[in-house]
Design a protein around this nucleic acid. Structure first.
Lengths: 238, 238
DNA sequence: TAACCATTTAACCTAACGTTAACAAAAATG
DNA sequence: CATTTTTGTTAACGTTAGGTTAAATGGTTA
């Protein structure tokens, strides 16, 4: 089968290390573009469509986090792996805020990096099955405009939705009458699947249920241990 | 969320190394069963449902390759990783013949093993998404939706099934009118074949019989000492 | 700084689930 | 036909997931 190599943007200021890593990844069937600093990295990012970014944190002029933030503005889904010399907690936190997919502390085993890359790309590729560009939904007698974050019941005044409410309802709508796995919402919306994000999600399910109570045809059911299901019953009139 | 740990069968004759490795994997959220030789390894493999096998090649009585061949006869898809002291070409070839998924030469970096395991399991799990599993069944007048865990009788309100009820009924349906061996359900669903899981399964058979009582055409028969049979009689009307 | 809003965290409660025990019935064994 | 093994059924129990409300946090804006 014809398979195109995955494209990786590698931003690393140490030229020796950068070239070695680039060659290593190249030998493993990745197309690697090497940038020597954050500035150059962003330029290259804008010109090409990469599948994954590997960013050194400690770089002159523009550090990895700042670069990541800029990259995220252009593409909120691209996987980012940080290379960092320090294990400092604040750095890790900072990284997660800009949506790091993984971390590696230098020095690291190159084979480990390879497996992380493969694992992330695989995860993303299965996730993207759920990716959709649909932003408007008819849900029973409700209409959801996910771009404007409006939920309208019949001819009433639209209800304003918060970002999280909106994303969650949209994800449910994308799976209308089908299972929307907990894990999917947590990784897509909260970007982290742990006890607290899970509880947070439950809070938002409660909020959505409150909104949706207006329409008897619509309800959010739980499938224990699996996720939720947005059920839209057939209108008896039709 | 209910996430069951992956089960690994580790067959390693060096007791010290075996225990260390078992503990290390255990710390990383794997359930590891350790066997001291090929014989014991195969016994344990038959009793439980593992997700992956790690086999030492050099072992007394029964070497890793022979064991792998036996394991492959029972399950042609289970991932196998070989641990070997030598890098000899013929061994590598021999390993690939029995379908090795990966190799590690001793001594190896434990973190590398960890990433190999994760990568392999992830690959297998996405592969298995593709081999279209059947999740919907017509059972007499019942309809089973195994994805949403619903059992619907004619036009009545669907009955919610618990995960175990659902899996068990699905397994019976896959063997409709045929024997569904006890051992199969126990290893596949309970992942362990012992007295207690066996009694637990009987409890679930009772629950399913209660649900299925609505339809005279459907019943679960026991075949003493063998297993169960989901019988669907022909509808006289058709 | 105060006031506001979205989100997270905490606390507490209920429902769902699976296992186990206990006892009954049926089938196999010899 | 007495005994053992396997299966059937019910109920109690402990654990975990989910539901709900309110308070804490944190960022933004006036």
């Amino acid at each position: 089968m014809e398979t195109v190599n995955k494209k990786i943007l590698l931003v690393e200021d140490d030229p020796n290390f950068g070239v070695v890593l680039k060659d290593y990844l190249g030998m493993n069937d990745f197309d690697v573009t090497l940038a020597k600093n954050g500035m150059e990295g962003f330029e290259k990012f804008r010109k090409e469509n990469f599948d994954l970014c590997i960013l050194d944190v400690m770089m002159p002029y523009k550090d990895g986090f700042t670069l990541a933030k800029e990259i995220r503005e252009k593409d909120e889904n691209i996987p980012i792996i940080f290379l960092t010399a320090k294990t400092m907690k604040e750095d890790v936190l900072k990284g997660y805020k800009v949506g790091a997919d993984d971390y590696l502390n230098k020095p690291f085993d190159s084979e480990v990096l390879l497996f992380k890359i493969k694992a992330i790309l695989q995860r993303k590729s299965t996730e993207s099955l759920a990716d959709s560009k649909q932003f408007e939904f008819q849900i029973g007698n409700f209409h959801l405009n996910s771009k404007l974050r409006f939920l309208t019941y019949k001819e009433e005044e639209p209800i304003k939705l918060s970002p999280k409410e909106n994303e969650l309802l949209r994800l449910l709508a994308l799976h209308e009458n089908d299972l929307m796995p907990r894990e999917l919402a947590l990784t897509k919306i909260w970007r982290d699947d742990n006890y607290f994000t899970s509880r947070s999600m439950d809070v938002y399910i409660a909020k959505l249920r409150k909104y949706l109570k207006k329409d008897d045809l619509v309800e959010i059911l739980n499938i224990h241990g699996e996720g939720f299901r947005l059920v839209v019953k057939e209108d008896a009139d039709r």
